[in-house]
Write a protein that binds this DNA or RNA. Structure first.
Lengths: 115, 115
DNA sequence: TGAACATATGAACAAACGTTCATATGAACG
DNA sequence: CGTTCATATGAACGTTTGTTCATATGTTCA
């Protein structure tokens, strides 16, 4: 039997109880992927901006001082992750946040970050 | 003058207005760092477990099927990021989530991730 | 003190990431 | 058509990240 440190509040059986509740690995991966989308300053800027209004790639580029290529690459990742949706209008492609959960999670983290 | 794609809803002056509201880079970095702490499956597991109860390193190791070293390294990062706090008791060190904001943000993202 | 246990930490390494550069696609308009 | 503008995409590159292995620190107890 492997050794597990014994103490008053948590013992082996408590661990086993927790283990039965432990969600599947896939859950943790999905959740991690969601947070990963928000875990880079450039993406955070993009998301902050899209949380204000629908914007096209050029707008984001001009607003955030990033290169067009970088913005485009990041948007492509965000779209693949289901964070943003794209709407094509002539030459331009307009992006928006995909749903209100994203807004809420981002806002909660962003507000918390500035103490 | 640089070119910005013109259209009905977003024009140059709207971009400039947004730009004035744009938070400082440091804000985005802090926010990104917060989300980064939640953006890895291993850390997500650790945080999920600590969201249930205070646990020592060995407990986490046994519960999550990770190596002791890996758990320790991750906890050290999470502590540096202010996500968890440590309490020493004899040989063991017990970890807890640092505050309720972390709980709420993690729970919101975790719940959203499983649709 | 010395052995056993719990945790921390440094070096090494492969994998993932974010940017840039160059170029491709595709729409608008003369 | 050909040019210009908006966006996408692939390759290359340096950086960051997460894990492992080995070892160090520190505590308990005989």
């Amino acid at each position: 039997m492997h050794t597990v440190c014994e103490n008053v509040t948590v013992n082996d059986t408590a661990i086993r109880a927790l283990q039965r509740e432990l969600p599947e690995d896939a859950c943790f991966e999905k959740s991690a992927n969601l947070f990963k989308a928000l875990s880079d300053p450039s993406r955070a800027k993009i998301i902050w901006a899209l949380n204000r209004e629908e914007l096209c790639v050029h707008n984001l580029t001009a607003l955030l001082g990033m290169s067009q290529s970088s913005v485009s690459h990041q948007l492509s990742g965000l779209r693949a992750a289901g964070i943003v949706t794209a709407r094509k209008s002539g030459k331009e492609v307009y992006y928006t946040l995909a749903d209100h959960h994203i807004r809420e999670i981002f806002e909660a983290g962003f507000e918390h970050a500035k103490e």
